[in-house]
Design a binder for these strands. Structure first.
Length: 495
RNA sequence: GGUCCUGUGGCCGAGUGGUUAGGCAGAGCUCUGCAAAAGCUUCCACAGCGGUUCGAAUCCGCUCGGGACCUCCA
């Protein structure tokens, strides 16, 4: 079964066929590094990390480009013609680039914790001013952009007369043109729907670059068009980002690129849905963001505890990427417990070797396991339904635990089935979903724990329950749980 | 106001017209020096009202909620 993805442009699930196999070009809108990343930001980067991982698994040669927006856009277009990054920098009395560096580093750190693979190219907006200016010049030459008082605007009305502006976001151009909003600077534009490509910088504006139209800074949408074109070409396979970027950002990107490159930029547009808090989108407008460092530490009124990055990743992957995901500390705690159970079973599976036979004793179980494992691929192929993949894994958990406890005989399933189970489980959990055991421990700790397990076993065999209980009790206080298994072994895990 | 999405059991969430989603929480049992874990069993659903259909959580209509975008936003 082939991979099918939901294409926001056509509003349909389509079979994924790369433009130039085996190469795949993927562009994902990256962070604006004027502040710390919050939980909501984790969604796209984890979603597209899985997309990236799966495409690699399928054998594609992927170039994954994710930009860093370090030039800032308008805080509110027209209202304050100020660069987002520089205004915050003034507030904090630091250099803009100092701020950019700080939040870029923090972003990288947080997403390493979340086990996302690095993109192949991570271009910065400030590093591509030349390309952006070049593209704007092309737009002017083509007659789709005009200069006013040192600023350059895209002529949406003209574009809409020849192309479908609004196709991606379902916008009606006539409505956009009629929108009556009293914004400062609007009078510069020919139409209210026009958007800025280049903005003249007022004297107090720190971030500024020389351009054919005077000193200024790039508009909001041009950076993605310029960088995507530079690194992926005029037409590439996947463009990803949050649903909230569909309009006007992606719509405008399509318009710019279409004029400059004479083709619509991306074949497949993929958009992840939002993370909500009490039903409301997490974001600036509601002032309800929880930063990733707060998530990790638990230092936030809405959090009862800190959560490991892997729990956050797991939490996000338990939902389909196009559904909203409602955050609560309770939901995270539930995810944490579930993930612990999944990984404990996975650890057992990894170590398990069965001396089974060619023919399964329990034919029914054998068929069931085969089906559950085969469905991993089927589900991920169905527009990356990670939730269903995880659900199947959970269905396998009791089987693994029962095999460990001897409730299911090792020869119940065939050697082939077992091998397949072990391999697929590992590939999908670690390689594709990118999850790993958060309680992975050092060699040293493992050695110490082996010793304690041995001592406790000895104590138990002598019925010295005082000693055995003492070991267990004190370890519990240290956050390590010891469990007596049915076979007489003792296992342990972090709480 | 415009465009679009959505309403699933205590909570989070899958769901392609006919079959158990899954996780967490709850109840019972088994195992067990104790504990924990685990295994088995089990309770609790498809916002409301109509319609289509042999059959609807799933399709259609209406009503009532919720949300996103239209402005920086993942």
């Amino acid at each position: 079964m082939a991979l099918r993805v939901y294409n926001s442009l056509t509003k349909e699930k389509e079979e994924f066929i790369p433009i130039n196999p085996p190469h795949v070009g993927m562009y994902v809108c990256g962070p604006t590094v004027s502040g710390e990343s919050h939980l909501g930001h984790a969604r796209p980067y984890i979603t597209f990390d899985v997309v990236y991982r799966y495409l690699l698994y399928l054998g594609y040669k992927v170039r994954y480009v994710r930009n860093i927006t370090d030039a800032g856009h308008f805080e509110e277009e027209g209202r304050q013609a100020e660069d987002k990054i520089s205004s915050k920098a003034l507030l904090e009395k630091v250099e803009p680039m100092e701020l950019v560096h700080k939040y870029t580093s923090l972003f990288h750190w947080a997403f390493r914790q979340l086990n996302t693979l690095e993109p192949n190219i991570e271009p910065t907006a400030t590093g591509h001013i030349v390309e952006q200016i070049g593209m704007i010049e092309q737009l002017i030459k083509a007659g789709y952009a005009y200069v006013v008082n040192g600023s350059v605007y895209f002529d949406v009305k003209k574009y809409a007369s020849n192309y479908d502006y609004g196709k991606l976001s379902g916008r009606v151009v006539d409505d956009l043109l009629e929108t009556t909003r009293e914004l400062e600077g609007q009078d510069e534009k020919r139409n209210k729907a026009d958007f800025a490509l280049w903005k003249m910088a007022p004297p107090q504006h720190i971030m500024r670059w020389k351009s054919p139209w005077g000193e200024g800074f790039p508009g909001w949408h041009i950076e993605c068009s310029a960088m995507a074109t530079k690194y992926l070409g005029a037409r590439f396979d996947i463009h990803g980002g949050g649903m909230d970027l569909m309009f006007p950002h992606h719509e405008s990107e399509i318009a710019q690129s279409t004029i400059c490159n004479h083709t619509s930029p991306a074949k497949y547009w993929m958009h992840n849905n939002m993370i909500t808090v009490n039903g409301k989108k997490m974001g600036k407008s509601y002032n309800n963001q929880i930063s990733l460092t707060q998530m990790f530490s638990g230092n936030h009124p809405l959090l009862t505890q800190g959560f490991s990055p892997m729990v956050i990743r797991f939490f996000i992957l338990q939902t389909h990427y196009r559904s909203t995901l409602d955050f609560s500390s309770e939901a995270l705690t539930a995810a944490e417990k579930g993930m612990k159970r999944l990984f404990e079973a996975f650890e057992v599976l990894k170590k398990m070797e069965i001396a089974g036979e060619k023919e399964p004793v329990d034919k029914e179980l054998d068929v069931k396991i085969n089906k559950l494992v085969d469905e991993f691929e089927e589900f991920i192929n169905d527009d990356f339904n990670t939730a269903k993949v995880l659900a199947n894994m959970f269905e396998i958990v009791p089987v693994i635990n029962s095999m460990k406890d001897g409730l299911i005989k090792p020869n119940a399933i065939s050697t082939t089935t077992f091998k397949k189970l072990k391999e697929s489980f590992t590939i999908f959990l670690e390689q594709i979903l990118g999850l790993k055991d958060p309680s992975e421990s050092s060699e040293q700790l493992n050695g110490i724990m082996d010793l304690l397990v041995e001592i406790r076993k000895e104590a138990k065999s002598k019925k010295d329950f005082f000693t055995s209980d003492k070991i267990r009790k004190q370890l519990t206080e240290l956050g390590i749980e010891m469990k007596d298994e049915k076979d007489g072994n003792i296992s342990w895990s972090r709480l």
